Simulated scan of single mutants.
Amino acid sequence: MTTKISERLDLTKLSSAAYTTMGRLYATADKAAEEAGLESTLRYLVQIRASQINGCAFCIDMHTIDARNAGETEQRIYALNAWRETPFFSERERAALELTEAVTLVHDGQVPDEVYERSLKVFGEEQLAQLIWVIVTINSYNRLAIAQRLVPGNHAPASSS
Results as ranks from 00 to 15, higher is better:
residue 121 K to C: 06
residue 99 L to R: 13
residue 87 P to K: 09
residue 122 V to L: 04
residue 117 E to Y: 08
residue 117 E to I: 07
residue 105 L to R: 10
residue 77 I to C: 02
residue 103 V to I: 14
residue 106 V to N: 10
residue 116 Y to I: 12
residue 91 E to Y: 04
residue 112 P to D: 09
residue 90 S to T: 14
residue 94 R to G: 04
residue 105 L to I: 06
residue 101 E to P: 11
residue 109 G to K: 13
residue 122 V to W: 00
residue 117 E to P: 03
residue 95 A to N: 02
residue 107 H to N: 15
residue 82 A to F: 10
residue 93 E to Y: 00
residue 119 S to T: 10
residue 91 E to K: 15
residue 105 L to H: 06
residue 112 P to V: 04
residue 81 N to Y: 10
residue 115 V to F: 03
residue 98 E to I: 04
residue 99 L to W: 05
residue 101 E to Y: 04
residue 117 E to Q: 15
residue 89 F to V: 02
residue 121 K to T: 08
residue 80 L to H: 00
residue 98 E to P: 04
residue 118 R to G: 08
residue 88 F to T: 05
residue 113 D to I: 09
residue 99 L to N: 13
residue 118 R to F: 07
residue 91 E to D: 15
residue 75 Q to C: 06
residue 115 V to D: 05
residue 77 I to E: 01
residue 74 E to H: 07
residue 87 P to R: 05
residue 78 Y to F: 12
residue 79 A to P: 07
residue 74 E to R: 13
residue 121 K to D: 08
residue 96 A to S: 02
residue 122 V to A: 10
residue 98 E to S: 15
residue 95 A to R: 02
residue 89 F to H: 00
residue 94 R to F: 05
residue 82 A to E: 14
residue 97 L to N: 07
residue 80 L to F: 01
residue 82 A to H: 11
residue 79 A to L: 13
residue 114 E to P: 03
residue 95 A to K: 00
residue 109 G to N: 08
residue 84 R to Y: 06
residue 81 N to Q: 14
residue 114 E to H: 15
residue 115 V to R: 04
residue 83 W to S: 01
residue 82 A to L: 06
residue 110 Q to K: 05
residue 80 L to T: 00
residue 100 T to W: 04
residue 74 E to Y: 08
residue 95 A to Q: 01
residue 74 E to M: 08
residue 119 S to K: 02
residue 90 S to M: 08
residue 112 P to L: 08
residue 75 Q to F: 09
residue 104 T to E: 06
residue 109 G to E: 11
residue 101 E to L: 07
residue 101 E to F: 07
residue 83 W to P: 01
residue 84 R to L: 07
residue 118 R to W: 05
residue 117 E to T: 11
residue 118 R to Q: 12
residue 89 F to L: 03
residue 97 L to I: 07
residue 98 E to R: 15
residue 111 V to A: 08
residue 105 L to M: 13
residue 96 A to K: 00
residue 119 S to W: 01
residue 93 E to L: 01
residue 95 A to M: 03
residue 97 L to R: 09
residue 116 Y to G: 11
residue 80 L to C: 01
residue 107 H to T: 13
